[in-house]
Design a protein around this nucleic acid. Structure first.
Lengths: 189, 189
DNA sequence: TCAAACTTTCAGAAATTACTGAAAACTGGA
DNA sequence: TCCAGTTTTCAGTAATTTCTGAAAGTTTGA
């Protein structure tokens, strides 16, 4: 690896983090490198910077593309492929959330639905189904909500987050207004 | 493995999911088993149900305890240790969020702070620092917000989530009220 | 203090995952 | 069409992680 220490520690950290996240080290490192780079990089730039093999780089880039985390572009008069990350950190965050939703949450919900549908034979299975249903409800609520806020514009989202738990007060306030004017402030009860 | 199909598919699914999450298969399986079980289980019950070795079970339970995801208890007149998961799925969710925060987010923030403090030598490093700073700001905002909502009571949290993106309207509404009465509705601009 | 009932540790085996180099497969001009 | 430049595939190897059995450790009650 041949990088300024500042960038190297960032790249190495993301490599390590990858392991804790089921992402292989090289993929993490390459993503980190592209994230901080001030220009798009080609595969050989990456090999040079990270110190891994050309084929490993190719695999890792394919993985990152499958996650929609890197953009592929061509530079005029250069046949090589150049890679970069989106500028907007919020967009990156949203992409990550969407992909994890698709790859991990959806299959889990499908499995849970299947299990909840089965006819239980005995108390143990009845209890298990009830537990699975609790989990199902929680995941569905949280992911619907995530999808909702994911589609907000960044401005509103930041405003909401900065408001933090004070949003409670706003809600209570609005609900009393709702009661006064006879309108319901939420989708459901 | 010796379990009703209903429960077995749940247990196996969590084993697989574990891999995508940097958690080993046995740990995932044992957690799933305890989650759906209608009574606390001891290590031998788990060995019997999952079909792994006694020592592996011991390791996995230690890991789950470190994550505060299982409770250890003793049954009267029985020297063995019995394990169970908390009843409340929201509590589980919160624990998970807290532990990931502590293990993954905190170290990342520390690394970023360190890198941002360094004196850059050249444009590339200056750019890298700017990018790291963007990431730092995002992570800090999101995690502060998470900490905030984590501490809400479940009732309020569910209300908020069901409201979804409609919270925007509430915010806009409240902000115009704020303007009219000359008060600011948020912590910051 | 001993023994029985459990739990934990740990070194090595097994399984899985990551990585490499060489070869194959593209791709866009000449 | 061919060729030079480039990317991808893949079989084998290396590294890492997981799992096991045996042994050591712990705890409780007699």
């Amino acid at each position: 690896m041949n990088l300024p220490p500042l960038i190297q520690s960032f790249v190495l950290h993301f490599g390590e983090m990858g392991s804790h996240w089921g992402i292989n080290r090289t993929v993490g490192q390459i993503y980190a490198l592209l994230y901080v780079s001030d220009k798009p990089l080609n595969a050989d730039d990456i090999v040079e910077a990270i110190g891994c093999s050309r084929s490993n780089t190719s695999m890792a880039l394919k993985e990152l593309q499958a996650w929609r985390l890197v953009k592929l572009q061509h530079l005029p008069g250069d046949r090589r492929e150049y890679f970069s990350t989106p500028e907007d950190v919020w967009a990156i965050f949203k992409t990550l959330a969407e992909e994890r939703q698709k790859r991990e949450v959806e299959p889990t919900l499908t499995m849970l639905r299947g299990a909840i549908m089965e006819t239980p034979s005995g108390d143990a299975e009845r209890h298990a189904q009830a537990r699975m249903n609790e989990m199902y409800q929680l995941i569905e609520l949280v992911t619907k909500w995530f999808a909702d806020i994911r589609d907000m514009d960044v401005e509103t989202l930041q405003k909401l987050m900065k408001l933090g738990s004070q949003v409670q007060k706003v809600l209570q306030f609005t609900q009393s207004i709702g009661r006064l004017t006879g309108r319901d402030s939420g989708k459901e009860a």
